[in-house]
Simulated scan of single mutants.
Amino acid sequence: MGDTVMGRAVAGEGEDRRRRIVISARRAGSVDVTAIAADLGVSKETVRRDLSALERRGLVRRTHGGAYPVENRGFGTTLEFRTGMHVVEKERIAAAAAKLLGDAETVFIDEGYTPQLIAEALPDDRSLTVITASLATAQALATRPRATVLLLGGRVRGRTMATVDHWAAQMLSEFVIDLAYVGANGISREHGLTTPDPTVGAVKRQAMRVSRRRVFSGVYSKFGAVSFCRFADARSFEAIVTDTRLSPTEARRYAVLGPEVLRV
């Protein structure tokens, strides 16, 4: 009996420690083994075992000397959370993605913080029709005198302040769009682009169908991550825009599939 109680207590401590590691990773964007071991008052080997356990559960992805958080089926981040992570990298990605506009006159802007930054980086000296599910993006562009903003109707997700469900997808199906800026919770060569929520995936899938050109943008931590609902293949994009923490070797592997891969 005593051994059983002690075992449960130790297991509980381990689970609490791993929960704190995940919270730290999500708050800072990554964790360092040495730093988190000092913060928690445990050995680096204990932290490494915890990270391995968390990686098996799909909550983090290991790196040399640490780990970064992964969004999975059970964890879709809020817009507020996303605006505080990798901000400098996202701003660079957005600026580079906006330069791919070309002669597009109609543009789909996906939900999420990076797509919102792309929208704000688009030129305001020419006429553009922007279709979006994001309330934040619609608000940011609505006052531009040469922008026509179409906000997709549907149920509003409080976590991301974006519209979803069949209403939004049905409205999208009626358009022919020059260029779509699409985001995802994860992108992998094996499983393509994924998101935790089927209703979000339905809107993204429809945007892919009705767009002539497609650009994916996302920070390095999206690569190799896999969520519940697959909505696109990496081959379907003309360009993938990410930051320089995606290794050149991995970038070449995605480029072999067809897209131009820009590391900025």
Rank of each mutant, 00 (worst) to 15 (best):
V226W: 06
H86T: 12
R62E: 09
V203Y: 03
R159V: 02
F81C: 02
A121Q: 04
M6Q: 13
Y220W: 09
T143W: 03
I177G: 00
A104Q: 04
V176Y: 06
E80F: 09
A94Q: 08
A138Y: 04
V149Q: 06
T78M: 03
M161L: 14
A232N: 09
Y113D: 05
E89N: 14
T106L: 00
D233I: 01
F237L: 07
V264A: 05
G74N: 14
G102T: 01
D39T: 15
A251P: 01
E15V: 12
A28S: 14
V256W: 08
R56M: 12
V22N: 08
S221K: 08
G186D: 03
V42R: 11
T83V: 05
Y181K: 00
R214T: 04
R26Q: 15
G74L: 10
E15L: 13
P145L: 02
V200N: 10
G112K: 11
M208C: 07
P69M: 14
K44L: 05
L59D: 09
A94H: 06
F228V: 07
P115T: 04
G41Y: 07
E13F: 05
A104E: 00
L54S: 12
R18L: 01
R213D: 10
I118G: 01
A119R: 08
A67S: 09
G66I: 05
V156M: 11
M1S: 15
E111H: 13
F175P: 08
E120R: 15
L122S: 03
T34R: 15
G58L: 09
F223H: 06
R159Y: 06
R212D: 09
R157L: 10
I21H: 04
Q116M: 13
T106K: 00
V176F: 05
Y220H: 15
E111K: 15
N185L: 06
A168I: 03
A255H: 10
V10W: 08
R82E: 09
L152H: 02
L172D: 01
S188W: 02
R212G: 11
R146P: 00
L128Q: 02
S188R: 02
G65R: 12
V241H: 03
